[in-house]
Nucleic acid binder design. Structure first.
Lengths: 166, 166
DNA sequence: CAGGGATTGTTCGTATACAAATAATTATCC
DNA sequence: GGATAATTATTTGTATACGAACAATCCCTG
């Protein structure tokens, strides 16, 4: 994470220099250091992963959520939109937009369900299936890159702890 | 994380039942399981933290980013907007909106800098300072709640590993 | 001191993320 | 079988998050 000083990047290394950044002294918050809190670190780690994902996914141009949704659709073969949202951990309002963009790119198709007139059935198109296969290979490298700062033996431990945070 | 089946919640427990959700068989992705990847877990952990934050911050109605920005302003006494963004790990475009909302709530004030006509100097208002003090106490509990699923001895370890992911 | 490069803040467009409200439909229960 | 509850999908509004482009200003170097 060595970045030039004048970048438009979201977080300069200043954000890691917890305690005493010049001009920013202690102001009576006791031992509370924002940069050391779980929430702050989760946000930054998530930011970094998203950046890695975008960079490494490259021309495939899938966002993390689009990728997750597409994979889940392929795994299910056929899903309903809200159920897909639950599988992919997305709000009905959020999954709506994600699916709309996947359909707009021709990666997913949507058929009406004769058994339930409320829903539409989602299914991956051939192009979507092909892209999914390529993306999975790429995503494996993205996971590796995300965990790269950890020693190999720390990685499963970290994932196990992270997984407990539901 | 025991939630009723029909909630509007972003992620039902279905999203944790990795391998074999009924109707969603293996479709040739080999050993790749989305729900076990670092990115997916980071996104969910971040979501959960944000939900805890909103719930526990309650009437104070600060979002995690607003809280971070406010704390950083108080710590610095006086900051420039972009510099604040770097300290709080936010894009210039993002910090702009965060600061605008803090100003709209009267928690932060903005004065022009005679030494540099590009910038404005940010400073916490008395109300902002008071809210910051209350919020820090609350945020400490939020961190505890976030890490609650971990055994006490696992918590510093987890934070240390998470911190390595920059 | 002049001119090029860097920095600051803003705006626009896109993509999550979620609460809340809504209409349409299905499921349940008395 | 009919009222009620639940579910599905959509829409609106708000809040991150970031790339890209921009004008104003500063800084530095020649």
């Amino acid at each position: 994470m060595t970045r030039a000083a004048g970048t438009r990047a979201p977080a300069s290394d200043e954000a890691s220099a917890a305690a005493e950044t010049p001009g920013c002294g202690d102001t009576g918050f006791g031992a509370y250091v924002v940069e050391a809190q779980a929430g702050f670190l989760l946000r930054r780690a998530h930011q970094r992963h998203a950046a890695l994902f975008q960079e490494m996914m490259g021309a495939r141009a899938l966002t993390p959520t689009q990728f997750t949704a597409l994979i889940k659709i392929v795994e299910c073969g056929t899903v309903t939109q809200n159920r897909l949202g639950r599988l992919a951990a997305m709000d009905p309002a959020t999954i709506q937009g994600v699916v709309r963009r996947l359909i707009a790119r021709g990666l997913v198709q949507r058929d009406s369900d004769p058994g339930d007139r409320r829903t539409h059935v989602l299914r991956a198109s051939p192009a979507g299936l092909e892209l999914a296969r390529q993306a999975v290979a790429c995503a494996t490298e993205i996971t590796t890159a995300t965990l790269a700062p950890l020693a190999p033996e720390e990685r499963p431990l970290f994932l196990s702890l992270l997984g407990k945070l539901i």
